[in-house]
């Protein structure tokens, strides 16, 4: 139980750290801490496979993506510069609305009754029957349990994820690839070197 509170504090602290740093690299580090802590929390919730997934995919892929993009954007411009603040008075309304949302969420957490599912009301023993030590391939939350569900009852979501990923790849290539050659379709025009092409976003607004 102490472990839970330690993990909770680290989680919150790293989240706050993430959003409050000026340099995005520091934010990425904070995010890393957040994800790892979250993986630990998953393990305490008997979701060991998801804990690993969290580490591998989130920290291993997504965070790396962030790091690479930071590197890409930093080249040739210098330290990250931000323009003038065009919405200086957003602080109070933002905090207010977030506080309201938070307040009501906590309120419902504290007061909403969690009604057990009908099968548990009928048979309370089931509530703990499937739990077991981690590593056992037949208990709740293990790889085997997860895989069995993924490929039998939840097959459709699995296929859909494949589709989503493919769409993402195509989208990324289209969006972030070289400047689209449609403008020169049918005409053979040599592309200007990168430095002479027009900026996508005009410099001064």
């Amino acid at each position: 139980m102490i472990g839970f509170y330690v993990l909770a504090i680290v989680l919150i602290a790293s989240a706050v750290f993430t959003i409050s740093q000026k340099s995005p690299v520091y934010s990425v580090v904070g995010l890393l801490a957040n994800f790892l802590t979250l993986a630990a929390l998953y393990v305490t919730l008997n979701a060991e496979f998801l804990g690993v997934v969290q580490v591998v995919i989130y920290t291993g892929a997504i965070l790396m993506l962030f790091v690479f993009v930071i590197a890409l954007l930093s080249s040739g411009i210098g330290p990250f510069t931000e323009g003038p603040d065009r919405l200086p008075r957003i602080l109070v309304p933002a905090l207010l609305s977030v506080a309201v949302a938070f307040g009501f969420l906590i309120f419902s957490v504290l007061h909403a009754p969690l009604t057990p599912m009908p099968e548990y009301v009928a048979d309370p023993a089931r509530a703990t029957s499937e739990l077991g030590p981690a590593g056992d391939p037949n208990v709740f939350g293990s790889v085997g349990d997860f895989g069995r569900a993924l490929f039998t009852t939840q097959l459709l979501p699995f296929e859909v994820t494949a589709f989503i990923l493919m769409v993402a790849v195509i989208g990324v290539v289209l969006i972030a690839g070289d400047a689209a050659p449609q403008a020169t379709r049918g005409r053979h025009v040599a592309r200007k070197p990168a430095a002479q092409r027009e900026p996508i976003v005009k410099a001064s607004k």
Binding site: I90, P93, A94, S97, V100, A101, S108, H111, A112
Partner: peptide, 28 residues
């Protein structure tokens, strides 16, 4: 205004209203 943050604020205010409403009706 064209500013993303302003639009985001509008979304958050709407979401807060939703949360408030459902919290209100869901809690005995």
């Amino acid at each position: 205004s064209g500013l993303v943050r302003a639009y985001a604020l509008t979304i958050v205010i709407g979401a807060a209203c939703f949360i408030a409403y459902f919290a209100y009706i869901g809690v005995p």
